[in-house]
Amino acid sequence: MAESTGAARPTRRTVLKTAAVTAGGAALAPRTAVAAGAGEVAAGPGETAVVTLSVNGKRRAVEVEPRVTLLDALRERLGLTGTKKGCDRGECGACTVLVDGERVKSCLTLAVMRQGSEITTIEGLAQGERLHPVQEAFIRHDAFQCGGCTSGQIMSAVACIDEGHAGSDQEIREWMSGNLCRCACYQNIVAAVADAAKGARS
């Protein structure tokens, strides 16, 4: 029995790439495409697009291939390593950031899809030395151990409170279940979110 793997089969990424080429009708020759606005990015293999994002209140232009996720754009191109990669497929929540105020798993969205968006990462939450109330509550309630999921938990918690999904411990448990904590400080995370939500209401 012999087996061959690799080039013979289309991969998810080559399919994605083909789709991007078709949709944009771009030439195959490498070039740099500059995105004019949302949904108008077009590039083929090796081509890049300049995406302008507002990250933590600062306008940042980043030149990326269309296949680059928002997560990798933040970490690998903009040097914002506070956002963590746990699974790269939307299962763990470690990469959660706010996009136009909504919590988004940044590994599941391409940077080119977020042209012009307002992105808030963990680095943008504190006001100078003053921590965000959710950050303070996480320390106060010991709502983390290793810290691997913490950036995502906190960003998710900020949105969870904003959404009005932190009305009871039971509600928090459900609405924070998209963020895995393998150290399993879940009881402390619930306490921190509840505490911060109480502060936000008063």
Partner: peptide, 19 residues
């Protein structure tokens, strides 16, 4: 005692290996 590395971990300032 609250974790002394808490601030680094809640602000994203803690540098892990891949960071």
């Amino acid at each position: 005692v609250a974790r002394v590395d808490g601030r680094a971990k809640v602000t994203g300032a803690a540098i892990y290996a891949a960071d």
